[in-house]
Amino acid sequence: MDYIQPFNRILLVGCNECVTVCSAGGRKEVGLLSSALQSAFLSAGKSIDIKEHTLERQCDPEYVEELVGMMDGVDAVVSMACGCGVQEVARRYKNKPVFPAVNTKFMGASERQGVWAERCQGCGNCLLGITGGICPIARCSKQLMNGPCGGSTNGKCEISKEVDCAWQLIWDRLKMLGQEERYLDIIPAKDWRTAGGGGPRKIVREDLAG
């Protein structure tokens, strides 16, 4: 609210992709936030004009282009996409302030309805093939590469009883697959350049890129 306080006409933009399925920034959440903001500003004695729009995707310029016609009538844009969407909108519409309305935290999977947990850190050189399909980078608190630490008790991590020990999960799964010998393989120290240590990352598909 502090972000948009100085503005009178806001464009609130949702995204139909990932943020929709995790109930964070789809059409439905755009409606809810719009109504909540309207009431919050009214309560404080200010009326603002909020336009709602939800794009198919906010991380592709083709879709972000659709907002062209709406930009003249607004003072600022509030994006309910992940950080990629916010930045794409900001890149395309350089003269409009763009603010994030979703606090993007991690790449996760849904454990059950309404619960999401981190599964992937996008670190490059994927290890899942040798760790039984369970990631020690995203799911071990210490990102250990060769078995658990002394803090693993009854399958739980020492940081919290709510957190599974990734290496316990890996061992259980390797046993189930009859691949116990995999556990003996020494995984060398990870080269973190592919995980962002080498600067911002980029993928170029030569066959697709013009």
Binding site: K28, G31, L32, S35, A36, Q38, S39, L42
Partner: peptide, 10 residues
């Protein structure tokens, strides 16, 4: 739905 309740207040 939440939207029905919020709209009523709005």
């Amino acid at each position: 739905d939440a939207i029905h309740i919020l709209k009523a207040f709005e």
